[in-house]
């Protein structure tokens, strides 16, 4: 599993960076969006899930049940910490995305363009 996830991280990261180095603000926004996925996947890969042979859905979710052994907590459940970190990252990601897209709308209205080169021209004209 880990190797599949690592490949996903590599691919999504590469694509998002390719988009972010582009010339168009829309592509950059989508790159930022994908970057969030890649980062979250990278963190969850480190939670060393016990998906080894036949993973049962949500059998090892980090929720205390009868069979929980406090002396050896990681035997029955996965590491809860990466999940807590990602959960907040997702919500924050939404707010940041919305803010970024609003800026995009405003930029396109004020300048009539979303190309970075043309925006640079507009900025120097304003000076």
């Amino acid at each position: 599993m880990t190797i599949i996830l690592s490949i996903c991280v590599a691919v999504v990261f590469a694509v998002s960076l390719y988009l972010m180095t582009g010339r168009e603000l829309k592509s950059i926004a989508m790159g930022v969006f994908l970057l969030g996925h890649a980062a979250n996947l990278s963190i969850i890969a480190m939670s060393r899930t016990p998906v080894r042979h036949e993973p049962q859905l949500l059998k090892g979710a980090p929720i205390l049940t009868e069979g929980f052994d406090p002396a050896n907590p990681m035997s029955s459940i996965v590491d809860p910490l990466p999940q807590a970190l990602i959960l907040t990252a997702i919500v924050i990601g939404f707010a940041v995305m919305a803010f970024l897209l609003s800026l995009l709308v405003l930029t396109s209205r004020k300048t009539g363009t979303l190309s970075i080169e043309e925006l640079g021209v507009v900025a120097t004209q304003d000076d």
């Binding site: 919500v91 707010a95 609003s102």
Partner: peptide
């Protein structure tokens, strides 16, 4: 807060 932020942003943008 999350409801307010989510709904508020979408509302604002669709009003636009």
């Amino acid at each position: 807060v999350v409801v307010g932020v989510g709904v508020g942003m979408i509302t604002q943008l669709s009003e636009e």
